[in-house]
């Protein structure tokens, strides 16, 4: 690949892509571990530390939540209803900005969830933004676009694939 950039800069980009990929995986892993835990104390500070202070989490189903305390309340609402979750979060497309301090990424997620005691399929894509602060990548903006959220026994072709989830 012809490039004006130095080998060092090109390697830095590849390392940043890997770091952002691992950040998103850590988000999924800590969320699933937290939601599944018998003695739930989630979201904990370790999970919330993945986000920038002014981070935003929004989706087409859950609305928009801005700032770490708003995120804490949003996730606590999930923890009250969800007893099992696996976020199979895959196929990242990650772009590192020329500054090297900002990034964006697209993922697919295939989720198996138990909510209110019921098994659910959830299929979504993410369009997320990230910032690098003090040499550490943080989640700046999660945009989840939920394609379907369907009871396991019903499948996703029924008329109302996106029942309201509440907050």
């Amino acid at each position: 690949m012809p490039s004006e950039r130095t080998v060092e800069q090109r390697l830095q980009r590849l390392e940043d892509i890997a770091a952002v990929r691992q950040l998103k995986h850590t988000y999924a892993k800590l969320m699933d571990a937290g939601l599944c835990h018998e003695n739930k104390a989630w979201p904990d500070d370790r999970f919330l530390a993945l986000f920038a202070d002014d981070a935003i989490w929004e989706s087409n189903v859950h609305g928009r939540h801005e700032g770490r305390e708003a995120l804490r309340a949003l996730f606590a609402g999930w923890a009250a209803r969800i007893t099992f979750a696996k976020h199979h979060t895959i196929a990242p497309s990650i772009d590192i900005a020329p500054s090297g301090a900002e990034a964006s990424g697209h993922w697919y997620t295939w989720e198996t969830i138990t909510a209110d005691g019921q098994p659910i399929w959830l299929a979504a894509t993410y369009n997320d933004d990230f910032v690098k602060r003090d040499r550490r990548w943080l989640i700046k903006h999660v945009r989840s676009n939920i394609q379907f959220r369907s009871p396991y026994h019903q499948g996703w072709a029924a008329e109302a694939p996106l029942p309201q989830m509440g907050a």
Binding site: R10, L14, I17, A91
Partner: peptide, 24 residues
């Protein structure tokens, strides 16, 4: 050499992106 090793990683990333772009 280092140049070729970086090129190879860049090619893998570009091909991954191609396949995911196709999916999207």
């Amino acid at each position: 050499d280092l140049e070729e090793r970086v090129q190879r990683l860049e090619a893998i990333e570009a091909i991954r992106r191609l396949k995911i772009a196709y999916a999207r």
